[in-house]
């Protein structure tokens, strides 16, 4: 008997297939109720709404793939937001602010990475700590909502380039960057470490370094998310990112990435972000009152995860059949 190659749907990033179907379904419903949905304005609007979560969820996905957790994302977004709101009108200017914001993200990521990958502390506990510290620092930098983000940043991030929304370009860039990274040695190691840390170690992979890089990259992504977020709201608010955390995890889970690591990928999470964003729009377009939307959000999330599991179950049963 010749062992069979992996079926095509497995190669498509684990459990992402049901998420894609769900996204298409919801886009269809949304477009049926809201004719402007598929105009270039509607799409650009959608992308701008989704890109912040996309950046943050990308970072989280990388960490989750290695089998760890990272709650610090919302805190980093908060710090970066208040930094942008206080710095961008001053001496650093737009590009300087971007640099500083990314540096802040990198720094938080590196601290997490050191504590977790090198000292072996539990990631959940460490990143709860850094989340709270980050939120505290954000409050010190900007105690109350306010500040102002430079117009250059706002137009630069929310505008178009050759008629293509910048947010869309960033989406594609994230997808391409991940497709590239996951085929590098480090990318393979990420999946290996998340799936089976013991076998990875016995195979000679450097488990701590792999995790270290993952946390640092995640910090960078959160920094980027904070920067783009600032451009979209145009001011600073130390608390507004608090609800972010759950949506980040939701996007990762809906996108089919296993929360215990080793399976899934950024592409799935981007689709998960799409689902969460379109879902809000769809519910609004249908006319569901706002105080019901959370219930739907939660239910659709559970349904999405259920279908995600279903597809792997089907794959297992298919495998068990004699070839």
């Amino acid at each position: 008997m010749m062992a069979q190659a992996s079926p095509w749907y497995r190669r498509l990033g684990g459990g992402a297939l049901p998420a894609i179907l769900l996204l298409i379904l919801m886009l269809g419903i949304y477009a049926a109720y809201e004719p402007s949905a598929l105009t270039s304005f509607g799409i650009s609007n959608l992308l701008n709404n989704a890109i912040v979560l996309a950046l943050a969820a990308t970072g989280l996905t990388i960490v989750v793939l290695t089998g760890e957790f990272d709650l610090s994302g919302a805190g980093v977004v908060a710090i970066c937001n208040v930094m942008a709101a206080t710095l961008s009108m001053g001496a650093p200017g737009s590009m300087g602010t971007l640099g500083l914001v990314l540096l802040a993200g990198l720094l938080v990521g590196a601290i997490n990475a050191y504590l977790i990958a090198m000292l072996g502390l539990q990631s959940l506990a460490v990143t709860i700590g850094s989340l709270i510290v980050c939120q505290g620092i954000a409050l010190i930098i900007l105690p109350a909502p306010g500040g102002e983000v430079a117009d250059a940043i706002i137009s630069g991030v929310t505008g178009d380039l050759l008629g293509i929304p910048i947010a869309g370009i960033m989406f594609v860039a994230l997808a391409l960057a991940w497709t590239f990274l996951k085929n590098t040695r480090w990318g393979l190691a990420v999946y290996a470490v998340g799936a089976d840390p013991v076998a990875s170690r016995l195979s000679g992979l450097n488990v701590p370094t792999t995790k270290f890089i993952a946390f640092v990259l995640a910090g960078l992504c959160y920094g980027g998310a904070g920067f783009v977020y600032s451009a979209e709201i145009g001011s600073g608010d130390p608390r507004i990112s608090d609800s972010f955390l759950l949506y980040m995890f939701a996007a990762v889970a809906i996108g089919g990435t296993s929360l215990v690591g080793g399976r899934g990928g950024v592409l799935g999470s981007l689709i998960g972000v799409g689902i969460l964003t379109v879902m809000q729009k769809m519910l609004f377009a249908i006319g569901v009152a706002e105080f019901y939307t959370n219930i739907f959000n939660g239910l659709i999330m559970i349904a999405a995860i259920f279908f995600g599991q279903l597809s792997s179950l089907v794959a297992r049963i298919a495998l068990r059949r004699p070839a």
């Binding site: 992996s6 393979l188 999946y191 290996a192 998340g194 799936a195 089976d196 013991v198 076998a199 990875s200 016995l202 195979s203 080793g262 399976r263």
Partner: peptide, 13 residues
């Protein structure tokens, strides 16, 4: 070494 507990990563090819 070929380990008894097998050091292959199941999710990789």
């Amino acid at each position: 070494t070929a380990f008894q507990e097998l050091s292959l990563v199941p999710t990789l090819s």
